[in-house]
């Protein structure tokens, strides 16, 4: 257990990073066909913009379900690492999922949350994290011991490296800035699902 990597920054001290940059940093490290489930809105826009890997799934609705979907993939393919990418607004909609993941403790699942404190896509209205809610504290409270705020990009990289090497589940949170996403996902649900299943080596 890489104790140093998991040392969490506090939310207040965590650097404001750029979501597009963090998506690219994650994707660059994925050399073993790891699966990535991108949550609704700007989260999957930036995943899309970081390169359209066949192992990426882009959620077009079902707000809050990136973690359960990724957990389902992780259960079906225990040999494959699976990442759920979520925004703060989305995660707040389905906090019980953190407890479900903690209870079953899938070794191959990592949750990455980009917390910009707002519902950026609808006009940047504040989410609960702009007030008193700390998502790492909630993840720890749900039973996810390996939960941390990334202090800066270098720390984020180390956390992702740990999630790729050591046993999960992992919860990595990063505070992000107000920059717009780097692209827009092509919204073709059947194509996204077909390509994702192909990318995972699953035939119907």
């Amino acid at each position: 257990m890489p104790a140093n990597e998991m040392k969490s920054a506090s939310r207040d001290s965590a650097k404001l990073m750029n979501r597009s940059d963090l998506c690219r940093r994650l994707v660059e490290k994925l050399v073993h066909e790891e699966a990535v489930v991108g949550g609704i809105g700007h989260t999957h826009f930036d995943l899309w913009a970081s390169g359209q890997r066949p192992q990426n799934f882009y959620m077009l609705g079902s707000m809050g379900l990136a973690v359960p979907i990724a957990f389902g993939v992780a259960l079906a393919q225990p040999q494959r690492r699976v990442f759920a990418l979520e925004g703060d607004g989305s995660l707040l909609m389905q906090l019980g999922a953190l407890g479900t993941v903690a209870m079953h403790a899938p070794k191959n699942l990592a949750i990455v949350v980009f917390d910009n404190g707002v519902y950026q896509i609808t006009g940047s209205q504040p989410t609960l994290t702009s007030y008193r809610t700390d998502l790492v504290a909630m993840a720890k409270g749900a039973g996810l011991a390996q939960s941390a705020w990334a202090a800066d990009e270098a720390h984020y990289d180390r956390l992702v490296d740990a999630a790729l090497k050591a046993e999960g589940p992992w919860f990595i949170a990063a505070r992000t800035d107000a920059q717009p996403p780097a692209g827009v996902t092509e919204r073709d649900a059947a194509k996204i699902r077909g390509r994702f299943m192909q990318g995972l080596g699953v035939s119907r």
Partner: peptide
Amino acid sequence: GIVAGAYMG
């Protein structure tokens, strides 16, 4: 969500 993800996997 879990059952949908598992199906795709």
